[in-house]
Nucleic acid binder design. Structure first.
Lengths: 206, 206
DNA sequence: ATTATATTTTAACGTTCATTACATATTAAC
DNA sequence: GTTAATATGTAATGAACGTTAAAATATAAT
């Protein structure tokens, strides 16, 4: 018997909202208010949906948040991809930090970084969300650690360089920039800080 | 008529708790959970008091929080005082960042910085608290701006140095360290980042 | 002892939270 | 046209939030 391609039977009343657009709107709300701060009331208002529609389409609030994080990652991934593909560690670092500043100050979006700001502090009941975001940051850090290990192999970093320390340094600046952006500092301000932070990279030749 | 010193008539049932100890305990709770995350339930549990006792002694939650911030400032002020009294800008910066790491990783206290972590994101109703903490950070920044202006006058920074940029840089690292500490990074890790961040200070002689 | 004042305790207040029951509406398949 | 399946809108759920009313309790002054 030839296995037929199973057509997913499309029945029932059709959605009257654009899923991607709703995710984009909710992402901004989470970005602006954080996970806990973005109440269902705010999400309903931001998306134009009613609560049951959100639950029907995205599960519960936590799952909705994670869906929004994925959407955010799709925005930020290319920047980190580009950074990691730079030919040497200095350009990697420069490209990374200038990239995150770009995102943190991009027109039409809230200031700062959704992942960094989303889970700083929270009530005990949203521990899982904080851990989820913490893992995101750990993953990002690890990618830069590996990139700098490659730099050592390729010789653009000395053998005694500390990839982990370099990556931690980068993420520390990243996180600091996110808070500065949230506090209202402008893009030129942040870029000035970035250039200072990188002026002695990779801290080896002194 | 000789004005008598007015004795405040001490009447009524006496408090059965130590005010300073309660503030200390509540401060830790705010430090750990943030302003919104530290619910009255948590504060009650942390202090051993009942809610009406807290309200009677400290006003509402916001006022209680501000009292705790004052107590925190009393802890951190000496570190910044010492930093600002250093003889040159490099030592100021070094002393500042090493001081904040000391506080952020001090035994018996939560990781990170109460002021920085306390108000990253929050619901609209606690805007005033966020602004309060934002002002605290602005005040701190300004003190370092003025210190670096003095450095220019005294000649330990070149005349074309940018005190504001230097202070912003310092605060950015400070904020980044707070998030790193909160994320579980150890004191040696943070100090490594500090030493990297300062290796080219004051970014003038290249 | 009585009075005045302040603190503690218990229990509630109204509001907001995330979540869902339920009835109605809208489509595709039969 | 009937049926099955899904989405929507309204309104409700129980829990947690910050806050307070009210009664009981403990001290100092009279």
């Amino acid at each position: 018997m030839i296995p037929q391609t199973i057509k997913p039977r499309k029945v029932g009343r059709p959605r009257k909202f654009d899923r991607d657009k709703v995710i984009e709107q909710a992402m901004k709300a989470f970005w602006l208010h954080g996970y806990e701060g973005a109440s269902m009331r705010i999400l309903v208002s931001a998306t134009g949906l009613e609560a049951p529609s959100i639950y029907g389409a995205f599960g519960n609030k936590k799952q909705f948040f994670e869906t929004c994080i994925e959407s955010y990652a799709k925005k930020s991934r290319p920047f980190h991809e580009k950074a990691i593909n730079q030919p040497d560690s200095r350009l990697v670092a420069k490209c990374c930090l200038e990239g995150v500043v770009e995102i943190m100050t991009s027109e039409g979006y809230p200031e700062g970084c959704l992942v960094i700001l989303g889970a700083v502090v929270s009530s005990p009941q949203s521990d899982s969300v904080r851990h989820y975001l913490s893992d995101q940051m750990s993953g990002l850090t690890l990618r830069y650690v590996k990139r700098f290990e490659r730099s050592i192999e390729e010789g653009d970093l000395p053998k005694n360089a500390d990839p982990s320390a370099l990556a931690n340094y980068l993420i520390t600046i990243d996180r600091g920039l996110a808070l500065q952006a949230k506090a209202g500092h402008t893009k030129p301000d942040l870029l000035k800080t970035v250039s200072m932070a990188l002026s002695d990279w990779p801290f080896c030749d002194r």
